[in-house]
Amino acid sequence: MPHSLSRRALAGLALLPVVGCAAAPQAQAQRGVAMQMVPDFADLAERVLPSVVSISVTSEARTEMPPELRGTPFERYFRERQRGRSQQVMGAGSGFVIDPAGYVVTNNHVIGNASRVQVTFQNGQEYAGRLVGMDDLTDLALLRIEAPAPLPALAWGSSAALRVGNWVLAAGNPFGLGGSVTSGIVSARGREIGAGPFDDFIQTDAPINPGNSGGPLFNMAGEVIGINTAIYSPSGASAGIGFAVPSDLARGVIDQLRGSGRVERGWLGVSVQDVTEPGARNGAGAGVLIAGVERGSPAARAGLRQGDQVVAIEGDRVDTSRALVRGIAAITPGQNVRLSILRNGRPTELTVRVGRRPATPAPG
């Protein structure tokens, strides 16, 4: 039996060189076609990197009192020891210039409560960064730097035009190494990762690592179509799943930060949940159920009730609670909006004067 198996093995091995030689021209041709399909990112990287920056931040962190010392004779001793003491915490991220006048976009979590921000360009030029404004709901921040000459700036692209499978280029400051680029494709769109009510991330397999946060994600035209924000990684390094805030969402936020230093969003003052049409495929939506109405809220003043079912905003169909929250948030506070609702199964309409979203509101 072992001898017979050996002959079979040898016979198999004897065939391999013949098959390999016969297939070589075809394999080479296939490799040639594949090489033609993979883009060369060199020109693109050379064009965009001068506008991509590394961001270093310094924060002051005070030592918290251990809970077991509170109310004991040691509490006073601890406070006296810590008076005037603070620990400097360093951090790093990425960003990019959107205006030659010196406006730089990055992530809110990169800046945090930094006491000092330093912006460094690929050519080694360094500038102090001043915070213009930040928005924690989309994790975006806008900085301003003062440069003696106009800075190279990037243009926004349309994230809505992206298709799954499109090539993208990510640039930033991974692990504090400075200007680096990685490439990949759009893996998915509209990802919700539990970051907040405005989750709408672009997923990419372009390697994104710690330090890439706040850096741009480019399409092949060199336009910014996303801001690299988060990764999914059991190890803390790239696992081929990165997330970027889409440019169509980011652009409006950045415009507001630039204009007033803050973002104002519309708000109804309701808690909501999805309604699924019985028998509908894939959980198709049938409107949004009002699960609760906050007392004194815009919704309460307009007569919206618990149990009402919102099906449209200004005639545009609403199928999910997330779509309702986003739709209302996009309306300028103080404006009137027409809601189409079902009340006890009967269609009706209500006009609501949209309020200003407070710091810690109800979902809607």
Rank of each mutant, 00 (worst) to 15 (best):
S247Q: 01
G129R: 12
L162V: 04
T106P: 06
A61I: 09
A160E: 11
R79P: 00
W267F: 14
P234C: 02
V318A: 03
I193Y: 05
Q309N: 14
I227N: 02
I227Q: 00
R262V: 14
A312C: 06
R317F: 11
P39N: 00
P39A: 05
P207E: 04
S86W: 08
L49A: 13
A9M: 14
P358V: 09
N123S: 11
L151Y: 06
N173L: 10
N173S: 11
V288A: 05
S115G: 15
V97F: 12
P148N: 11
G242M: 09
G165Q: 08
D248T: 10
G133W: 00
I313T: 05
R326K: 15
R258E: 10
H3C: 05
S159D: 02
P50I: 09
A195H: 09
G242C: 09
M1S: 15
L257G: 08
G259M: 02
G32V: 04
R85C: 03
H109E: 07
A128D: 14
R346N: 05
S86D: 05
R258T: 02
L131D: 06
V164P: 03
D43T: 14
D255S: 13
G95W: 12
R317L: 14
L249D: 03
D316S: 15
W167N: 02
R163W: 01
D200L: 03
G240D: 11
A362P: 00
A299C: 07
N108R: 15
W167M: 02
A329W: 00
I328S: 01
T72P: 00
A29K: 12
V253Y: 00
G165P: 08
V325T: 10
L350H: 03
A147I: 04
L268H: 02
G364R: 05
A302V: 08
R357D: 02
Y77Q: 15
P73G: 07
H109D: 13
P39R: 01
Q125P: 03
R357P: 03
E314S: 10
G179C: 09
V272G: 03
G287F: 04
P174A: 11
E60I: 03
W156N: 00
R357Q: 15
E223K: 06
H109L: 14
G84A: 13
N113M: 13
R258H: 11
E64C: 00
A101Q: 14
T72N: 01
R301G: 06
I208W: 02
S115Y: 10
G214V: 12
L324V: 10
P73N: 08
S54W: 11
S51R: 09
T58R: 15
